[in-house]
Simulated scan of single mutants.
Amino acid sequence: MTDQPVRWGILGAARFARQHMAPAIHAAEGAELAALATSSAEKFAEFAAFAPGITHHNSYDDLLGDPNIDAVYIPLPNHLHVDWAIKALEAGKHVLCEKPVGMDVAQIDRLIAVRDQTGLLAAEAYMIVHHPQWQRAKELIADGTLGELCHVNAAFTFRNLDQGNIRNQAEKGGGGLRDIGVYTLGSARWATGQEPQRLSHARVQMDYGVDVFADVGFDFPGFTYQGFTSIRMANRQEVHFHGTEALLTLTCPFNANVFDQAELHIKRPDGSTTVERFAGVNQYVLQVQNFGRSIRQGAAYPWTLEQARGTQAMLDQILATV
């Protein structure tokens, strides 16, 4: 164990990395944004503007060879995730990789095997489990506040018609399910601690080789699930956990502080509603800090590759129906 900060490198100057994860690494306790790999001097300058002293590497391999880097964050297109995560582990770096960490279960199994061989931490950047609203939701379900959980339904949509965007490119692992279905599906698994027994229905619409709308249902041991995703509809995100004694609603479950303020609404049969608000919480910063505690202090990490694999298994079942 050591109190030294985790020195982070980022593979690629993705916009999401620039807007969210790089600032989060820079702001997190116990972390240092130390290096960026990009062939673009202009993009590097955007990162260096808020992280002075960051090292510029012109290639991903160069960054992986940097002995001053402890961990790498991978925001590359989906189809590149597993290969570069494995290269990073083999180079002796801990890995935090954007979701979906793999394109299918078999890819995640490859990554798990290398993680086990190296003994390093490898995880999917599934930030929502680090947010206190989801930890609170999990607690409310477990302690019986909702009574017997009967049904979960979730929605996550946004509108993206840009064919140059990787979400609309099949060859790069695009589509709504891989981009946002990981949240509607994985959050139900994480919050309830249950795994699906079977796919009950799947209605998937395709455009340019990627899913642009998916309405799916699963049967869990204790409840039914229905969720939909779309990358062609107006912005929406909600999750509802419907029990016999109360209805729990998360009004901004996934993009807290971006889509809206994170709130939990607990509505009871007598018509009363309790609202819990989580203002100003940055789930990306919490994710980086928890990753560092796992590396430096041996703390359990709240979202393992095995948990990511469970969500991927659901995605594989849905996509097999197309």
Results as ranks from 00 to 15, higher is better:
Q307D: 14
T157G: 01
F223D: 03
H131G: 00
M314R: 05
A35W: 04
V210W: 06
N165R: 09
W84H: 05
H56A: 14
G292W: 06
L185E: 12
V210T: 07
R268S: 07
Q307H: 12
D61L: 15
C97Y: 05
Q317V: 13
E276I: 03
R198G: 06
D179H: 14
F218C: 06
P221K: 04
P196L: 04
S39H: 12
A85R: 06
Y126N: 02
L146I: 08
G164Y: 03
Q19F: 09
L250K: 04
Y225M: 00
P75C: 04
A85I: 07
I86W: 10
E263D: 05
E90S: 14
A22Q: 04
A48G: 05
I318F: 09
G144Q: 02
G227I: 03
I86Q: 04
E124M: 04
Q283S: 04
I54A: 02
P302T: 00
E90W: 12
F158K: 00
R296V: 05
Q287R: 09
A51T: 05
A154Q: 08
A300V: 12
T321A: 08
A41R: 15
A14H: 13
H26R: 13
E263G: 03
L36V: 08
A125S: 08
E238R: 02
A17P: 10
H131T: 00
N68Q: 15
R296I: 04
G12E: 00
F50L: 12
T244D: 01
T311S: 12
Q307M: 13
M21H: 13
R309F: 12
M1K: 14
H265D: 01
S59G: 13
V114W: 10
G144F: 05
R167Y: 14
A313W: 14
A34M: 10
E98L: 12
D62G: 13
D109M: 10
L315F: 07
A188R: 09
A122P: 13
G271S: 02
G193L: 06
A88D: 02
D219W: 11
V72A: 01
N255C: 10
H130M: 07
F16S: 13
T249P: 03
K93P: 06
F16W: 13
D70K: 11
Q261W: 11
P23K: 07
I180R: 02
A88W: 08
R115H: 12
V285Q: 08
C252I: 03
G173D: 03
L177S: 03
F278T: 00
N290G: 15
L248Q: 08
L63Y: 11
N255E: 13
I295W: 10
A49K: 12
Q283K: 09
H81N: 06
V258G: 01
A154T: 05
P75G: 08
A299S: 10
G144K: 01
I25Y: 03
L149C: 06
V95Y: 03
S59N: 12
D61P: 14
G193C: 06
I54P: 06
T224Q: 15
N235M: 09
I69H: 01
P52Q: 06
A45K: 05
A106Q: 13
C252P: 10
